[in-house]
Amino acid sequence: MNNYVSTLFNLEGRTAVVTGAGGHLCGEMARSFARAGCQVAVLDLRLEKAKAVEDEIRAEGFTEVISLAIDVAKKEDFETALEQILAAFGKVDILVNGAGINGSTPFFDITLDEWYAILNSQITGTFLGCQVFGEYMVKQGKGSIINISSASAGPPLSKAFTYSVAKAGILNLTQNLGREWGTKGVRVNAIRPGFLPTEWNRKNFITPEREAAILGHTPMARFGDPSELTGCILWLASDAASFVTGAEMAVDGGYSCMTI
């Protein structure tokens, strides 16, 4: 049984690329791919954050890892990153589009600069990642792309206006590409994390009243931990999910199944 399971979910020798990997959730995803036997490219706008995750991976004894700076709103940055990753590892099998920022500005106070900054980091970055790495994967004839949706993709959460618009777009793009590349060997899926709060979230979004509302709407009555996304991420990346594309997987403690 152990051999059966390990063969079914085997990722050893594959190359995984994670954008936003210097952050709370995607840093854990990058570490998880390394632990699963992957070569890992850690990409982030802040190179020092990416290098910190690379150092953590190396400290665990995994040496096939590189860190690169990328502005996900720039197509040329994705093209350069792809070239560097191919030079280092020879191929790309898995892409997680995880970069993105949020904002809690009241609707009437949102500036165009803030609107575009959030949209660029979220939906534009996901679009460009899918376009550049997806083209490579389609030519290769195989690959798994995992985008990051949200509980705010619909119906939207309060206080996260631009973010919610972006996440709805990411879900739609995921479904579009799942359909478009269904016969190309490239699967495109999304995960829908529940509440796994960062320090920024706690400062800007989660008041005591909001925390009570969130947990009262979550059947498990607790926040999640980034490590609890790992099983879904590794499954979607593996051949065990070979008939799964255009799907959104909720990892949210039951938040999305709750009404009253």
Rank of each mutant, 00 (worst) to 15 (best):
G169M: 07
T174V: 06
Y4V: 06
V165G: 04
W200L: 05
D93C: 10
N2Y: 10
V132N: 08
I118Y: 11
D225S: 04
N102D: 10
L11F: 05
I118N: 06
F33L: 04
M29Q: 10
N2Q: 09
A240Y: 10
E83I: 03
I145G: 02
L234A: 03
F127H: 11
T183H: 12
G98K: 00
I85A: 05
A59K: 10
G61R: 13
N176G: 13
D93K: 14
T7N: 14
V65W: 02
F89D: 13
L8K: 15
V53R: 00
Q39S: 15
V244D: 13
L177P: 03
I148T: 02
I146Q: 05
I66W: 02
V165F: 12
D71Q: 06
L47Y: 02
S256G: 13
L236K: 11
Q84R: 07
G154T: 06
F195K: 02
A190H: 10
I146C: 09
Y163H: 07
K167N: 09
L68Y: 02
P106Q: 00
I66A: 01
I94M: 09
W115V: 03
G27R: 00
L119E: 15
N147Y: 07
A240D: 11
G134Q: 07
V138I: 15
Y163L: 04
A153K: 15
E180F: 04
M137C: 12
L86W: 12
E114G: 01
I85Q: 08
D113W: 14
E64R: 13
A160Y: 05
S149E: 13
N201P: 01
A50Y: 00
E199C: 02
R202Y: 01
I85E: 10
T230E: 10
I170V: 07
E79P: 05
R14D: 10
Y255G: 07
P106M: 00
A240E: 12
A240Q: 14
T259A: 15
P197R: 08
W235M: 14
N97R: 06
M220L: 15
E79C: 03
E180M: 06
Y116W: 15
A247L: 11
I118K: 07
F62Y: 15
G154W: 15
I123Y: 05
V188S: 05
D239L: 11
E199F: 02
K139T: 11
W181R: 06
A81V: 00
G98F: 01
E83C: 01
D252H: 11
